[in-house]
Design a protein around this nucleic acid. Structure first.
Lengths: 284, 284
DNA sequence: GCACAAGCGTTATATTAATAACATTTCTGG
DNA sequence: CCAGAAATGTTATTAATATAACGCTTGTGC
């Protein structure tokens, strides 16, 4: 069982030194990619020497990384839990008018409409702003708040100075105090619009902050309150909230930014990943 | 994507000679173990020469087995942006406008796979648990945390006693204290798995809490740590790490629950809406 | 603050993998 | 059966990985 490896790696006795913890943590969190790694590649990630990795593995009781891989291989021998997809049956069932299939169809249609959005000038403007901004603030309320947080979290992998703002203190001073040029506010608001959203957007513009608004077709104030409005046509029936569509739009934005920034992103990701590896060992 | 490898290996043009077919078959049937193999090990298995394997791979368009492994790896845990050469190609494609359309197509394919998931027994079990539970706790970490919060927020529209847990105090007492029967923990964890997730799941089960685990196909411990495992395949598509797919799954879960509960949900939604109006965070 | 020990990095070396160049076998059409 | 071609195997070379041996750094007990 690969579980034995996890147990070993987690055992306190074998986490004595700093690099012990680094390596243990790295192994634990990158179990899936381990087969592709070498002692050297792990060492490089963690900015330590391959030798240290080898020594650690030996203390775990393995004769080198290959030996560990062998055990991994046996443990991984039968992944019975893979769900095999067959779109054909999906299409058949949609014709039969089954409920879930219908919902998925709706989702698929929505995703098609996203494509239109990505070809619009607003899309480009949004990308440009997100890339060139000195600071990016992300805001959203109520039920889509979590999704916007996800966006902020992912965006911060691509560029520095990204922050989610919740305005808990009621002032939004961090966004509105005008202390930094070139700020951008990314505001996500849908359906039952939050009362706070429009005022925030207006104030932001007044303070010289560019506003990108990600919303749906029912927003009544996209132009007044934003510099760039991304309006996602979605189905807002009683059953379907369309958050998946919004997430898809965000993923596309991120992909686009990644492509634009290219190697810069790679560097930043490696930096953040190393930080994760470094700080990860305190919580395990 | 690893899908591309399968397509290549199956294409008739590249199955001309006897060893072509041998190797193609071997790769196709041993996809999972491929990361552990070398050109030599494959050759030995098939009683042919390593050279032949190398040549075949080159004709497939790979620069040796390591190159193929790299692509496999990306199919596994793909931050598509980790590979520098690929970024350049992406930049080219996006100028041509091919990329976005292709990405969306891929995403659509993923949604097809979701459908497969909804027909599985695990899906029904998950729905049953979420409906019949006395209390539902939702947990997730790092970048998917926000998404899980969204799920918790939406789920609380369909049924009472839903809570997001962040374990900030380090005990998770609210979930684990055994004070209430029939609790359910909905745990969402993907990609770079959080160190805290598995221990939480194990503890929860020990405390008599049923665990629903929403994860991707690379989770190494779905069975030990959950009563019901919802494994979403291909969630590591070209659009970042596929949060959109996960959100879609959540939306589907919610839809399904709403359908099951019917009028009960309507009542609850009306109640919550009235509360919202009272406290005034929403517009119109 | 000193001496000793444990941990870590560096260099050199053995082992292994992949491939180019050449030799041999197998296949194909007549 | 016999060329010529295609496919495969063999050998030698190159690149890369892992580790042993040694030396430096950091930590620890007195």
């Amino acid at each position: 069982m690969s579980n034995r490896i996890l147990k070993l790696v987690r055992s306190e006795e074998l986490r004595r030194s700093k690099s012990d913890r680094l390596i243990a943590n790295y192994i634990e969190r990158n179990m899936v990619e381990l087969p592709y790694e070498t002692a050297r590649s792990i060492a490089t990630h963690l900015r330590i020497s391959p030798m240290t990795v080898g020594r650690y593995l030996r203390r775990l009781g393995f004769d080198g990384l290959d030996d560990l891989k062998n055990e991994l291989r046996r443990g991984h021998s039968n992944p019975a839990w893979q769900v095999k997809g067959q779109v054909d049956r999906l299409q058949q069932d949609i014709r039969d008018g089954k409920l879930i299939a219908g919902l998925i169809q709706e989702q698929v249609d929505n995703l098609g409409q996203i494509y239109e959005l990505t070809t619009s000038p607003e899309w480009q403007q949004a990308i440009d702003l997100l890339v060139s901004a000195s600071e990016v603030y992300v805001a959203a309320y109520q039920n889509v708040r979590g999704i916007a947080q996800y966006f902020a979290s992912q965006l911060s992998y691509t560029r520095p100075r990204v922050q989610f703002v919740d305005g808990l203190n009621g002032t939004y001073a961090e966004v509105l105090d005008g202390s930094v040029e070139g700020r951008v506010l990314f505001l996500h608001d849908v359906r039952r619009f939050a009362a706070k959203a429009q005022p925030l957007a207006l104030e932001a513009r007044r303070a010289g902050v560019k506003v990108i608004l990600l919303t749906d077709e029912f927003c009544l104030w996209p132009k007044e309150a934003s510099d760039v409005a991304l309006i996602v046509p979605g189905s807002h029936g009683p059953l379907w909230d369309g958050a998946a569509t919004m997430t898809a739009v965000m993923d596309l934005l991120l992909s686009n930014i990644i492509v634009l920034l290219g190697d810069q992103v790679n560097e930043r990701v490696e930096l953040l990943t190393r930080l994760q590896d470094t700080f990860g060992d305190f919580e395990a």
